[in-house]
């Protein structure tokens, strides 16, 4: 049996993206006009309007990989975001529920400058950079994704952590209306994750607000999410509403649920298998054959020193 390789040319690539979007806009405006003509009030903006939007002044970054990018279609239609459904295609289908304006992120806990930021303010906190990172899911697949964001350290510095701040806990929005997957007790909601302070301050760690130069789509964790490229994907928590500085290792959702399968650190490590499957290899989305998984997802040069002296088989 043969597996068809992805078509060389995707329809979205044949048509220039602007034209493609204009066409959508055209269709939307004509349908809006048609509705207006029939006297129906078209007050609610169409769902697409929310995610469409180019991010201005995005700088390139030396941290980006030059590997072949996964397509926007792959990145936005194959997601693990249980709050929008547990099947891979569910988050794209349910993305419409997650409205991302207004949105605030509360920075609190062991900090001198606790503050609730509006999302617009956060997006302008630091210069936006494109960071093309490998993403390695704990389920042994991977992608190469052009995130747009800024270093988490920029936010941490503004918050001025006290001497007691040893870890940061992140919390996802808890609103079953906007995240309908939360109506099902698959996990304990809201989703929480955490980083050690030095991991949070590492220049590779970013808060992402965009993808492919545009505003982050809901299914990818809009409007703001963490991206920690040397850890399994589930550490990169989505749709964040709280950033809490704490003195002890905070709770993290998968770790709480299955501590023997998902450690707090969850660094990508080909030598420590998931109890139910191997982590030595992975399938890059779009490729047929598995490839070898790299220690720290290939970011060892930058991050290995964070864990020197730690037994990574024990602190997996």
């Amino acid at each position: 049996m043969l597996i068809k390789k992805p078509a060389d040319i995707k329809s979205s690539e044949i048509t220039p993206r602007e034209l493609y979007l204009n066409r959508r806009q055209f269709m939307l405006s004509t349908s809006a006009a048609a509705l207006a003509f029939t006297g129906v009030n078209f007050a609610n903006p169409p769902a697409q309007a929310q995610s469409a939007g180019k991010l201005a002044n995005v700088k390139k970054s030396n941290f980006s990989t030059s590997e072949k990018l996964n397509s926007l279609k792959e990145i936005t239609n194959y997601n693990n975001f249980y709050e929008l459904g547990t099947d891979k295609e569910d988050p794209a289908a349910n993305a419409k529920y997650l409205t991302t304006r207004p949105w605030t992120v509360a920075v609190e806990g062991e900090v001198k400058k606790a503050k609730t930021y509006d999302i617009e303010e956060l997006t302008k906190l630091a210069p936006l950079e494109e960071r093309i990172y490998r993403l390695r899911c704990v389920e042994a697949w991977s992608m190469v994704i052009p995130w747009v964001g800024f270093p988490l350290s920029a936010l941490v510095k503004l918050a001025e952590p006290t001497g007691n701040a040893k870890f940061i806990q992140f919390v996802t929005l808890h609103d079953p209306k906007r995240l309908p997957g939360q109506k099902i007790p698959t996990m304990e909601w809201p989703y929480v994750e955490g980083l050690r302070m030095d991991e949070a301050m590492h220049p590779l760690t970013i808060l992402s607000v965009g993808l492919y130069g545009e505003v982050l789509p809901a299914q990818n964790g809009a409007p703001i999410r963490l991206v920690v490229p040397w850890k399994y994907g589930f550490k990169s928590i989505k749709s964040i509403v709280k950033v809490r500085f704490v003195d002890k290792q905070p709770a993290a959702s998968w770790n709480m649920m299955q501590p023997q399968e998902y450690g707090f650190y969850s660094n990508v490590n080909p030598e420590v298998d998931h109890p139910r499957w191997t982590q030595a290899t992975e399938r890059r989305i779009g490729e047929l054959r598995r490839r070898k998984t790299l220690m720290f997802n290939g970011y060892g040069e930058q991050v290995a020193s964070l864990y020197s002296g730690m037994d990574l088989k024990k602190f997996y």
């Binding site: 068809k4 279609k73 194959y78 891979k88 779009g286």
Partner: peptide
């Protein structure tokens, strides 16, 4: 071409 991004 509709078997998701991860057809296998």
């Amino acid at each position: 071409d509709n078997l998701t991004a991860n057809p296998i």
